[in-house]
Design a protein around this nucleic acid. Structure first.
Length: 765
DNA sequence: GAGTTTGAAACT
DNA sequence: CAGTTTCAAACTC
């Protein structure tokens, strides 16, 4: 298939390669060497970019700033500023306008001159014409693509990480980037990712819609994807010494927050990276840009509605520029040996809708549809935009009808049917699709004609009502629209080692826990089972036989399963037997559960990764042993958060697992909750959540474990706006409470004290 | 496809 | 917050 070699290419990039990279990163934030490795991590890219730039320019601090997405012209701006505020010439690149591009390229040359002092005319204008993105990062700087290395004269120093991604390429890509960084695509991972993404997407889009609605500016197009812009918010995110000129829009700030949140959910070390970089006072503008770019690209696709033929041509043209290949029908970009999804899922969705409405669109090979969940699920704002914004409502209605008419459209109907087949639509009868009973509503999407619902209100024409209902629902439960299944430690070794088990590792948990009584958690009635995750202590199920992991699973078995995720199913069969034999109340107390969870919930980024990288399998004991020798050293290197100390303290691992000491609930739950907050907190909540007890309660529908973001002065730095604060806050929030630095036995009291405090402060029950 | 079962969501 | 009702998905026949 078309994307197969991309897939292989991705596979060529050894997954374990990321591990030493993580390890390296957490050990030291030095960017020396390991360029290729760092390229695997956008945050590290920034780091290395910054340091590389610094090496080129002396004391300059470099940051790449995406221009206002709303301009839709694909601009990216590179600013260089030094500590004193003196700036090198800024370079703004316009990727669409030929004249401007030429001019910008010229300026870019000047910029490079500033970088290396040795720039000639090597910068080719067509580097922004589509060949900029080589499939390998080496190619990125190859002569046929861009003569940056020649221009700069210092490829190595430039670090191959000088990335100026057109905006349209990057918005929403951080998610996939990070996902693919952790492993090549698999159906499970895509599914899981989509699930997560969907939840996140919900927040974003609803947040945007509500914001837009409240602002009353009617800029649906902006609200739809670009999110409202407030420069001050972004500026507040920027450390005071970083020049913010040329940056416009809260979008960046939000984007950063989202990206960082996403990243942090994948990788604690990425969080560390965030923190670290913040400490450095730099910006992760790769994530800005990467996330932002697709916004303008989406604008392109959205414009299709007004003039399908022409616009589609434009889209296809653009697509040709950067749509390299497909993987399972999902257009992807391959860059730096990684796989990028060309389009965010929502874009694909919108495009699916748009393309369905475009009579000229016939080639199913150009873009197939992403996995079920997102195929046809056009988030409210996009749907609204399609129907009310750039696309006349009649056209929106036609999207569905188109497939049911002409022979040409029959093809589309087939496609549409495919879309529909894989995904069920709601069949609500009484709820009018305005309650969480309705899957569409719960998913944050409008119902389509393919739904079998009756008296449906969940349609674009009732947008106000829908949004009101949504607000009501969120008022009842702020996490109502959050993903039900939260992956707490997606970089757990199990995930690293067997991406195929992504969904089934115990690192994923149901957000709230099930309450099954009769289904034994082995049917789809059970949300945990449905989500492909095991039941945990948070579940209130009875007689749990969840094959993905049940409450009666022994600690040893869990640890074993963690070690051998491939035998998960067999083991769960065994646990089934155990459960059936036992059919008794959980003999393992909650502490046992938490004890078991420690392995899953603590993603000992470099410890476990290192262990995995070196041995190919995970062994907690080994890990602990390794950390016996490492933790102390690392504790002096790593961030002051204590995060790694906590996770890697041998006293917090080995004795509890093998010495049968109970682990304070605080450990896993706090981590879990922080991860939950990362993953599942609605954007609106994120923006409003304050570190107050009240906020905590509101964040925790199940009265459990949503800990308030602990705002630390050194983390917030000089934030001045709420928007920024929330961004930083949620980047950093997955820091668990400070760990005991003293041996476990001596710190029990402290832990419990902390535990008590934690519970007291978070409403944990 | 109709009827039943189930558990989440909503309500009181 | 617990108990009850409502609801729609999952399941069975």
């Amino acid at each position: 298939m078309p994307g197969s070699d991309v897939y292989r290419q991705s596979d060529i990039q050894p997954k374990p390669q990321l591990m030493p990279c993580f390890q390296k990163e957490v050990q030291s934030y030095s960017s020396s060497g390991c360029i290729d490795e760092h390229l695997a991590d956008p945050f590290k890219e920034d780091n290395i970019m910054n340091s590389s730039m610094s090496s080129l320019t002396g004391h300059k601090e470099t940051t790449t700033k995406a221009d206002d997405t709303n301009t839709g012209n694909g601009k990216a701006t590179v600013l260089m500023s030094d500590q004193t505020g003196e700036e090198l010439p800024s370079v703004s690149m316009n990727f669409f306008d030929a004249t401007a591009r030429e001019k910008e390229t010229e300026r870019f040359g000047e910029f490079l001159q500033c970088l290396s002092g040795n720039v000639d005319d090597h910068v080719e204008s067509d580097i922004f014409g589509g060949t900029f993105f080589g499939e390998q990062h080496h190619e990125l700087f190859s002569p046929q693509n861009i003569e940056l290395q020649a221009a700069a004269g210092q490829h190595d120093k430039l670090g191959a990480s000088f990335q100026i991604f057109p905006e349209f390429l990057q918005r929403d890509e951080a998610y996939k980037y990070s996902k693919e960084s952790l492993g090549s695509l698999s159906k499970e991972s895509v599914k899981e990712a989509d699930q997560r993404h969907r939840g996140i997407r919900r927040h974003l889009h609803f947040g945007a819609a509500i914001s837009c609605k409240h602002e009353g500016n009617g800029t649906h197009e902006t609200a739809n994807l670009c999110l409202p812009a407030r420069q001050t918010d972004f500026e507040s995110f920027v450390p005071p010494h970083v020049e913010t000129r040329g940056i416009s829009g809260i979008w960046q700030a939000r984007s950063c927050s989202q990206t960082a949140t996403l990243w942090s959910s994948f990788s604690p070390s990425a969080c560390e990276s965030v923190r670290s970089t913040q400490n450095y006072g730099d910006l992760h503008l790769n994530s800005f840009v990467r996330s932002e770019s697709a916004g303008s690209e989406f604008s392109t696709s959205k414009k299709l509605g007004s003039n399908p033929h022409q616009q589609e041509e434009t889209l296809m043209s653009d697509r040709d520029h950067y749509l390299c290949k497909e993987i399972d029908g999902i257009p992807v970009l391959s860059f730096s040996g990684e796989i990028y999804s060309h389009l965010g899922y929502e874009q694909q969705e919108s495009q699916a809708a748009v393309e369905a409405g475009s009579s000229s669109y016939q080639s199913s090979s150009i873009m197939q549809y992403p996995p079920c969940d997102s195929l046809h699920l056009i988030p409210y704002e996009q749907q609204a935009s399609l129907s009310k914004g750039t696309m006349p409502s009649s056209e929106y209605a036609d999207i569905v009808e188109l497939n049911q008419m002409s022979p040409e459209r029959n093809r589309k109907k087939a496609k549409y049917t495919i879309k529909s087949e894989g995904c069920r639509r709601c069949t609500c009868k009484k709820s009018r699709c305005l309650k969480l009973y309705c899957e569409c509503f719960a998913a944050g999407i409008y119902c389509l004609d393919t739904c079998s619902c009756e008296n449906c209100i969940n349609k674009p024409e009732y947008e106000d009502t829908v949004l009101d209902m949504r607000q009501q629902t969120e008022a009842r439960n702020p996490l109502a629209f959050a993903p039900k299944v939260v992956n707490k430690a997606t970089n757990s070794p199990a995930n690293m080692m067997e991406e195929g088990k992504w969904m089934k590792t115990s690192s994923s948990r149901h957000k709230k826990g099930c309450n099954c009584k009769k289904s034994k958690c082995s049917k789809k009635y059970c949300e945990c089972f449905q989500g492909g995750v095991g039941c945990c202590n948070g579940c209130r199920c009875e007689g749990c036989y969840n094959p993905y992991g049940n409450k009666t699973e022994t600690v040893y078995r869990r640890a074993e399963r963690w070690n051998n995720p491939s035998q998960e199913q067999q083991d769960t069969l065994g646990s089934h037997t155990d459960s059936i034999k036992a059919e008794r109340p959980n003999q393992f107390s909650s502490t046992w559960e938490e004890l078991a969870d420690i392995g899953h919930l603590t993603p000992p980024s470099h410890c476990l990764l290192g262990a995995v990288a070196s041995s190919g399998s995970l062994n907690i004991r080994d890990c602990s042993k390794k950390f016996l020798g490492q933790s102390q050293q690392e504790s002096s290197v790593l961030s002051p958060s204590g995060y790694l100390n906590w996770h890697h303290s041998p006293s917090s691992l080995t004795p509890k697992l093998y010495g049968c000491e109970a682990l304070p609930e605080l450990s896993s739950d706090s981590f879990f909750c922080n991860m939950m907050m990362e993953d599942a907190t609605p954007e609106t909540l994120k923006n409003t959540c304050t570190p107050s007890t009240e906020g905590v309660k509101s964040c925790s529908p199940n009265q459990k474990c949503v800990s308030p973001p602990k705002i630390r002065s050194h983390e917030l730095r000089s934030s001045s706006s709420q928007g920024l604060r929330s961004g930083c806050k949620f980047i950093l929030q997955d820091l668990p409470p400070f760990p005991p630095l003293t041996p476990y036995s001596k710190s029990q009291a402290a832990i419990h004290q902390n535990d008590g405090d934690h519970k007291g402060s978070t409403g944990y029950q």
